[in-house]
Nucleic acid binder design. Structure first.
Lengths: 204, 204
DNA sequence: TAAAACCGACCGATAGTCGGTTTGGAGGCA
DNA sequence: TGCCTCCAAACCGACTATCGGTCGGTTTTA
């Protein structure tokens, strides 16, 4: 890696950490260059704007998530499990990350949304391939697979990523997923056990 | 209405127009007070910050949408039509508004998302009541109505409000809606005719 | 020796502050 | 009723701090 390339990666890493811990809006370019020990001019030698830097940071995040998804696909596990695994990428499950937590603070809605939107775009084709595999094995029966998959991702995202959710939400989600993909009732019910109950409502 | 209250409403109206036409981020407080012919201090007498003003503007928008939804519910039309009508509130249909158009410009992602998130919260109970009515009439058959309704709103929002969508998306949405609510196949297919094709992909 | 990397003073715009002035209406009083 | 007092709400605009971004120039590197 060339000298400049290394520096750029360092800057991205620093920004990545700061954006997540304090939010994009609350992180100033001055703070970034101060932590990186470089001058303003150097920063703008590598990035044409703060927002363009955000795009690259998001790119980094997406690539990681996509890589994780691809690994799940390669695994020798039942198709429904693969789907559940990838679905967990959109929603922060029991994964190792304090990363995602910060993403939910109201402060950085901008980054939050850019990430999720792109993530859905990236995951749709990957997950579609898995579903197609499932139809061949007779587990699912449906047409328009990419559209259905995207819909699942949108639901998962919109249901489990916005604040809290209830046990019923999980039940309904499983039911809906089965119906969208044309699966036997109960095929996906194991998902219930995978959901991270920590941010679930306890009452009602 | 007291003097001050009137002024505040005027300011909100001005901000509402400007936020929609130029975006929240691209509208400065200076521009607002210039158009309103008041001083900086006066502005901050009514709003503690620009963002807090945005909250109030959004509140205004939500109330209007909710009011429109309530009117649809009161109407003497078949239950599925009511649902389609309210669903159209989340998604800009052939309605009279140049309003919504501006909401989609990438510039004001912030406002866009705040509005949609809140709108879903407000519409969920209203639409749930309609669906309950539908179950009584035997049109739908499902449990956990609020959760299912919210899911429908999330899908509608995530599918038809993010950039472009295809004819297949509509087909799949209708199919999914019927399955989520436990309706006969074809019950909701008239939705197809309601979708504003103007922002639909033409190719593929 | 040229390009890439780097520097930091400077700039314009912007959200928000602050100390002070004006206004209008409620209450006291003749 | 008419007038005065007084206080809070309404209003003012100069000022500040911060921030993203620019620019002309210097140093490093291959």
């Amino acid at each position: 890696m060339k000298k400049g390339e290394k520096r750029k990666q360092d800057l991205l890493k620093i920004a990545y950490d700061m954006f997540l811990s304090h939010g994009y809006e609350n992180t100033s370019v001055d703070e970034i260059i101060e932590k990186a020990q470089i001058a303003k001019g150097t920063y703008y030698h590598y990035f044409k704007s703060k927002e363009q830097m955000l795009e690259e940071v998001i790119e980094m995040m997406i690539e990681r998530e996509a890589e994780a998804a691809k690994q799940i696909i390669e695994m020798d596990i039942p198709v429904p499990q693969k789907i559940a695994g990838i679905l967990s990428s959109v929603k922060p499950a029991e994964a190792e990350m304090p990363i995602e937590d910060a993403l939910f603070h109201p402060e950085n809605a901008l980054m939050h949304n850019k990430v999720r939107k792109k993530l859905i775009d990236v995951l749709t084709p990957l997950l579609s391939e898995v579903v197609r595999e499932g139809t061949e094995k007779g587990i699912f029966e449906c047409d328009n697979i990419p559209e259905r998959v995207r819909m699942l991702l949108v639901i998962s995202n919109g249901t489990f990523n916005e604040g809290t959710f209830s046990e019923r939400d999980i039940t309904v989600f499983i039911d809906t997923a089965e119906k969208i993909l044309g699966a036997e009732k109960g095929t996906m019910s194991f998902i219930y056990g995978l959901i991270d109950k920590s941010d679930m409502e306890t009452d009602e």
